[in-house]
Nucleic acid binder design. Structure first.
Length: 507
RNA sequence: GGGCCUCUAGCUCAAUCGGCAGAGCAGCGGACUUUUAAUCCGCGGGUUCGGGGUUCGAUCCCCCGGGGGCCCA
């Protein structure tokens, strides 16, 4: 055995071993015994005529203690088990969270099958039962079994159902979290509803969904550190994309006038309660649109998603507070709001030295390579962002930090770009896209200088993208929004709760 | 990157000043034909995250490492 193999097996419990935790050992032994008795712990098929929800719906009116006369088969995971001698109660749970009680009695199934039920079934097992739908003496809708069968034997015990698992256990073993915590299942459904709503809204405005490369020889479209990988066949280094932007714009050049993509981006940065190294992104480009029209679209996307999930543009967050996403949203400018917060006039034309002084006053750390625009943004994040609770479009960002955006049509030194803030975090961004290939080339060259000066988030020159733009790109509005963050905005959950299987350090 | 907190049974958590490592649920054996986190009787279950140190003695104190969380940058 190699060292690697030894590593791989070290943590794996030996199914026949003596060093298993007691409860796993007992379950493994039961599995072996069931096989030895000629029964199947994992049958390919079990009888199931109704889902648990169907039974509940069909017999909602059944009176306490009554019998329905209907004979059916149900199956599900055993989440509660009680043995009262010649009668056993097992509560089955379906994937949708619906639970239904099964009663297995001496009269119903006979001595042998009752004894097997007690001996074979543990919490967590999948079991099927055949029998009449009845209501118990206490009014609990039940299936009074005349036969039962193991559907799938669980080898690991479930955690207690009455307390939530620790946050780490929930994230590392989401499959268990999903079994025992209804809210975990709910988030999965909520996310699906949001994605569906986004697509519906895009389609209602005649947008076309595309998929663009995730493996790119040149990463671009955003300021972020990429993941690197290698392609053996071409012997070239590749990057996992940090944004789909440059390819979606190529699509617009080609005449896909309204285009969107909902897919994963990868950024080789930290992971905390608002950042995940892989995250789902919504991007859209609208020919003959601009940052105003794309802002309207973004608001519609968010509000429709809230309606789809909550039935209202006022959503209830995880902490129980209400949050209003409805109506028109506040619009402020970056430099206007910064001036107000700083108590003095700051514009895109303010000298770097004055900004450095202002940064010192407010204890904002400054790097040598910071441009005036970068300085202004750092100040804005410190002085203004913490107060942006209600949905707010912040407009007109500095030119030197927005290399893919058109210069503002009237205000010097800024671009037609907005950032959307919700509860003080950045939910999305939108631009009047830069479509002049000559200016675009100048911006790329300037970015290359910034990169050389030490900003490893700066963009690289993308010659093929410039070639595409040189064929002519119509005036275009573009937007981007993090799907995970949209979920956070609507539900109030942390990012690791909105992602089904978030990245965690190996155990 | 820095600071603070945390890691104990399958799960959730206790353990006083450094002195036999515990509870609830889960599990095992027994009783019970209507239970709703059933009840009653009895019983097991631990690499206290890993490694080192101090000590007669370490879950506890010290050092190194790892996982998780919070705050700061």
């Amino acid at each position: 055995m190699t060292d690697q193999q030894a590593d791989a097996t070290r943590e794996l419990p030996d199914p026949n071993g003596e060093d298993l935790p007691e409860q796993m050992r007992i379950r493994s032994e039961k599995r072996a015994r069931i096989l030895a008795e000629g029964k199947a712990p994992y049958p390919i098929e079990v009888e199931r005529t109704h889902t648990l929800a169907q039974v509940r719906a069909d017999h909602a009116e059944l009176e306490t203690g009554a019998s329905s006369g209907e004979i059916i088969s149900v199956a599900g995971r055993v989440v509660r088990f009680r043995d009262a001698g010649k009668l056993c109660f097992a509560v089955l749970q379906d994937g949708d969270g619906t639970q239904l009680q099964v009663m297995v009695s001496k009269n119903g199934v006979g001595d042998e099958a009752l004894a097997a039920f007690k001996a074979d079934v543990d919490l967590g097992d999948f079991v099927s039962a055949h029998g009449e739908v009845i209501s118990s003496r206490r009014g609990e809708l039940s299936v009074m079994a005349d036969s039962w069968a193991m559907a799938s034997k669980a080898l690991r015990p479930l955690p207690v159902l009455h307390k939530e698992m620790s946050e780490e256990a929930r994230v590392r073993q989401r499959y268990v979290d999903l079994i025992v915590r209804p809210a975990a299942r709910e988030v999965v459904k909520t996310r699906a509803s949001v994605v569906r709503s986004l697509r519906d809204t895009f389609h209602s405005h005649d947008f076309t969904e595309v998929e663009t490369p995730m493996l790119q020889s040149l990463h671009g479209g955003a300021a972020a550190r990429p993941f690197q990988t290698h392609m053996n066949a071409f012997d070239i280094d590749l990057f996992l994309r940090i944004a789909p932007e440059l390819f979606l714009k190529r699509a617009v050049v080609g005449g896909i006038d309204r285009v969107f993509e909902i897919n994963r981006n990868f950024r080789n940065e930290g992971a905390d309660s608002t950042h995940s190294p892989e995250f789902a992104m919504i991007e859209a480009y609208q020919a003959y649109g601009n940052y105003n029209t794309i802002g309207d679209l973004t608001r519609e996307l968010v509000q429709n998603a809230a309606l789809a999930v909550a039935g209202s543009t006022t959503v209830v967050l995880a902490d129980g507070t209400e949050y209003d996403l409805g109506g028109e949203w506040r619009q402020i400018t970056m430099f206007g709001s910064l001036s107000e917060a700083a108590g003095r006039e700051v514009t895109a034309l303010t000298e770097r030295a004055e900004l450095v002084e202002l940064a010192a006053e407010h204890h904002v750390p400054v790097q040598d390579w910071y441009s005036p625009g970068k300085l202004a943004e750092e100040l804005f994040e410190e002085l203004v962002v913490p107060d942006l609770y209600a949905p707010t479009f912040v407009r007109d960002y500095p030119e030197d930090t927005s290399p893919l955006v058109s210069a503002h049509r009237t205000t010097p030194g800024v671009t037609e770009k907005w950032d959307l803030y919700v509860r003080s975090f950045e939910l999305g961004t939108g631009y009047s896209e830069l479509v002049d290939p000559v200016v675009q080339r100048e911006r790329f060259v300037a970015q290359a200088r910034v990169a050389a000066a030490g900003d490893d988030e700066a963009m690289r020159l993308d010659e093929d993208f410039l070639r595409a733009m040189e064929y002519g790109m119509p005036p275009t509005g573009g937007m981007g929004m993090g799907l995970d963050r949209l979920l956070m905005a609507i539900t109030g959950l942390g990012i690791r709760e909105t992602i089904l299987f978030p990245l965690v350090k190996p155990e």
